[in-house]
Simulated assay, not measured.
Amino acid sequence: MPELSTKLQTMLRVAAWLCLAAVAFATLSPLGIRPTTGLPPSIERFTAFALVGAMFAAAYPRYILFAAAIVLGAAALFEFLQVLAPSRHGRLFDAGVKFSGGTVGLIAGWLSVRWFARR
């Protein structure tokens, strides 16, 4: 697989982890301070994890299983941690939406890197 430049790879990795941190904040913060877009919550969840998945796949294209473990593991962990938060609730359906978004993002990000690296 063609390589991305080291500088671009580093920037993608920093962006991926910052994106995951932002999703963690939005997922685990009290409802009163949680940022919203006005879209239905399932669309927000799917889109957020699709973005995280794409970022991690682009940041770690040679380690796609690592990227998948981080993204899908975070989806499970965040949903579990919501069960412990007094103002939040974790649901299996929400976890499924996050897994779906993360998987779509991982595939799209990995394919994009392969396509752009060849150009």
Results as ranks from 00 to 15, higher is better:
2 P>K: 12
4 L>W: 08
4 L>F: 13
5 S>F: 04
5 S>Q: 11
6 T>Y: 13
8 L>F: 09
8 L>S: 09
8 L>P: 07
10 T>E: 10
10 T>S: 13
11 M>L: 13
12 L>H: 03
12 L>F: 07
12 L>S: 02
13 R>Q: 15
16 A>D: 11
16 A>N: 13
16 A>E: 12
17 W>Y: 08
18 L>I: 13
18 L>K: 06
18 L>V: 14
20 L>T: 12
21 A>C: 13
21 A>P: 05
21 A>E: 07
22 A>C: 12
23 V>K: 00
23 V>Q: 00
24 A>D: 05
24 A>Y: 02
25 F>N: 05
26 A>N: 00
27 T>L: 08
28 L>F: 04
31 L>H: 08
34 R>P: 02
34 R>A: 12
35 P>C: 05
35 P>K: 04
35 P>Q: 06
37 T>C: 05
38 G>M: 04
38 G>Y: 11
39 L>S: 04
39 L>R: 02
40 P>G: 13
41 P>V: 14
42 S>Q: 12
42 S>C: 07
43 I>C: 08
43 I>L: 14
44 E>I: 11
45 R>W: 07
46 F>N: 10
47 T>H: 00
48 A>S: 09
49 F>D: 10
51 L>N: 08
51 L>Y: 06
52 V>I: 14
54 A>C: 13
54 A>V: 08
56 F>A: 13
56 F>Q: 10
57 A>R: 06
57 A>Y: 07
58 A>Q: 07
59 A>Q: 14
60 Y>Q: 11
61 P>D: 11
62 R>Y: 13
62 R>T: 15
63 Y>P: 02
64 I>G: 09
64 I>R: 12
65 L>A: 15
65 L>V: 15
65 L>F: 15
65 L>D: 15
68 A>F: 10
68 A>W: 09
69 A>C: 15
70 I>C: 13
71 V>W: 03
71 V>C: 07
73 G>S: 07
74 A>N: 02
75 A>V: 12
76 A>R: 03
76 A>M: 05
77 L>V: 06
78 F>G: 08
78 F>Q: 08
80 F>P: 00
82 Q>W: 03
82 Q>A: 05
83 V>P: 00
83 V>T: 08
83 V>A: 05
84 L>Q: 04
84 L>K: 04
84 L>P: 00
84 L>D: 01
84 L>R: 03
84 L>I: 04
85 A>W: 03
85 A>P: 00
85 A>V: 03
86 P>W: 04
86 P>F: 07
87 S>F: 05
87 S>D: 08
89 H>T: 09
90 G>M: 01
90 G>H: 01
91 R>C: 12
91 R>A: 14
92 L>D: 02
92 L>M: 09
92 L>C: 06
92 L>T: 07
93 F>N: 10
94 D>L: 09
94 D>G: 09
97 V>P: 11
97 V>M: 13
98 K>V: 06
99 F>G: 07
101 G>M: 03
101 G>L: 02
101 G>N: 01
103 T>S: 12
103 T>Y: 04
103 T>K: 03
104 V>W: 00
105 G>T: 03
106 L>S: 13
108 A>D: 03
108 A>R: 00
108 A>S: 09
109 G>F: 01
109 G>E: 00
110 W>R: 04
111 L>E: 09
111 L>R: 12
113 V>Q: 07
114 R>A: 15
116 F>A: 08
116 F>N: 01
117 A>N: 05
118 R>S: 11
118 R>H: 14
119 R>H: 05
